[in-house]
Amino acid sequence: MSLQLSTEQRGNVAVVGITGDVDLYSSPQLRKEILKLVNARDARLLVDLGKVTYMDSSGLATLIEGLQHINRNNGRMAVTGLRDAVKEIFELTRLDTVFSIYPDTETALEWVAS
């Protein structure tokens, strides 16, 4: 499945919804979108992976880059909705201990907005 991105503003939080496979082919598109959202001071970003069918290390690298920018700008970032296949790669790379991961969007939004 090709990558589809949607971005909406929910209060002070930008919510990026991703649909499809995130791989070496599609991750540059995601990177472009995320880098637009993370450079402001105190940026708040929630990445919804609920419709991601596949993710490789280039997708993880994109999220890591986003998190690095967020941390530098005193912002806050979380990911939500990980399917089993996506959860697997976070666990394999131990990034489940680095990212703030929430099972549902509302709880994640509450934390990111606070």
Binding site: A61, I64, Q68, I89, T93, R94, V98
Partner: peptide
């Protein structure tokens, strides 16, 4: 090393783990 937070270099770790 997985304790470094930086993009890249994860592919080889995944291959060797799997």
């Amino acid at each position: 090393p997985l304790d470094e937070l930086r993009p890249g270099g994860l592919g080889v770790h995944i291959i060797r783990t799997v």
